[in-house]
Computed example of a mutant assay.
Amino acid sequence: MLLMFYVGKIKEYKYTPGERFEVTPEMKNEFDRDGFILVRGLFTKEEIDKLYKGLQLGNIIKHAFNLPDGEKMNSKMVVWNHPGNDYTGRLGRCRRLVDTTEKLLGGEVYHYHTKVNMKEPHTGGAFQWHQDYGYWYKNALLFPDLLSVMVAIHRSDKGNGCLKVLRGSHKLGRIDHIRMGGQNGAEPERLAEAKKILEEIYVELDPGDGIFFHCNVLHSSAQNHSDRKRWVIIPCYNKMDNDPYADHHHARATKLHKVEDEDLIKCNEFDDLTGKWFMDPSIDKTIIASKVNENVDSSEEAPVNNA
């Protein structure tokens, strides 16, 4: 069962654990209009606690890298391209995410990649205003038929650098992006004009809350100057009929084997990372990154994407 209610100007949905998650025509219309839908309690406290426990073991986090924000702070990130059979892989394959994504995008999808973004207390860097398709366009994707699902692991609010989105900005189409630190950011003049007419929303999330957002939605987040962590997990999906026309550093169309929602909490596999294909940032020419505890010169000229 899915309940809908309002808080301020943001329409929210509430997921009821144990019941099938259904995308209503209203939800689909909202996604098409605004570029996102916000779901409270998408994952239970027990499910998120188990996820965090698995991440703390370090087998996944050891693949993390630093992403400079151009303002002297870094966020840590780890990215894997195939879901795998561990707990994080079950999360990325559960019907709660995949079925919903397929209804919102209008067709079969595959797992493009999942990332964990980690903003540590007092040091976690910002993410510049950008569209995900501003990066992914360079990965030989012809159509913007992708979305991401950001799920909070810790409380995410204005104090520790929560997500911000421009409502309806996916309708702008792909905007040119330029280098900003180790990242790509939306072209400033066009961004400034878009912000004059589109509503900027702070997406504050409790652990387990999730937001599904289109790959052309402009979004950003501020630095974390608080004494609290802000970790999120973000599975990303692409439509099967949007297979890239060339190989690159993310997955090409690969059949996604869904798991039932109730199977997630039953999974106790945290060590088997077989087949996940962790991304090496040195081969991703859309960013400039470094290994954790390794410095990077964020003023370095960006290499040309060769995906």
Rank of each mutant, 00 (worst) to 15 (best):
M4E: 00
Y6Q: 11
G8I: 05
Y15M: 01
P17K: 01
P17R: 02
G18I: 11
E19W: 06
R20E: 15
E22M: 08
V23D: 10
P25E: 13
P25F: 14
M27Y: 10
K28D: 03
E30C: 02
D32T: 07
G35K: 07
F36E: 13
F36L: 15
L38H: 14
G41H: 08
G41Q: 03
K45M: 06
D49P: 05
K50E: 15
G58M: 06
H63Q: 00
E71V: 12
E71W: 09
K72D: 12
N74L: 05
V78D: 06
V78F: 13
V79N: 07
V79W: 01
N85D: 11
T88P: 04
R90D: 15
L91N: 01
G92Y: 14
G92V: 05
G92Q: 09
C94H: 10
C94K: 12
R95I: 00
R96D: 09
K103I: 03
G106L: 09
V109F: 05
Y110S: 09
Y112G: 07
Y112F: 15
T114G: 08
K115N: 02
E120C: 07
E120W: 05
P121S: 03
H122I: 05
H122C: 10
G124S: 04
G124T: 08
G125P: 07
G125M: 11
F127E: 07
W129M: 09
D132L: 12
D132G: 05
D132K: 03
W136G: 07
A140W: 09
L141T: 05
L141D: 13
L142N: 14
D145M: 08
D145G: 04
V149I: 15
I153H: 04
H154E: 13
H154I: 04
S156V: 06
S156N: 09
D157G: 11
G161Q: 14
G161M: 11
L163G: 12
K164I: 04
R167K: 10
K171P: 00
R174T: 06
I175D: 08
R179Q: 15
R179L: 01
M180N: 11
G181D: 08
Q183V: 02
N184A: 13
G185L: 05
A186P: 01
A186M: 03
E189Y: 14
E193W: 13
K195E: 07
I197R: 14
I201P: 01
I201S: 02
E204V: 15
I211Y: 10
F212C: 10
F212D: 14
F213P: 14
C215L: 02
V217T: 13
A222Y: 01
N224V: 10
N224A: 02
R228W: 04
W231H: 10
V232F: 03
C236M: 13
Y237R: 09
N238P: 06
Y245L: 03
Y245M: 00
H248D: 10
R252G: 15
K255R: 06
L256A: 09
K258A: 02
V259L: 02
V259D: 02
E260F: 06
L264S: 07
I265C: 12
K266C: 08
C267K: 04
F270M: 13
F270H: 13
D271T: 05
L273N: 11
W277Q: 01
M279W: 00
M279I: 11
D280C: 03
P281Y: 12
D284W: 00
T286G: 02
I287M: 07
I287D: 04
K291Y: 01
N295P: 13
N295C: 06
D297F: 13
S298R: 05
E301R: 03
V304A: 05
V304Y: 06
N305K: 06
A307Q: 03
A307K: 00
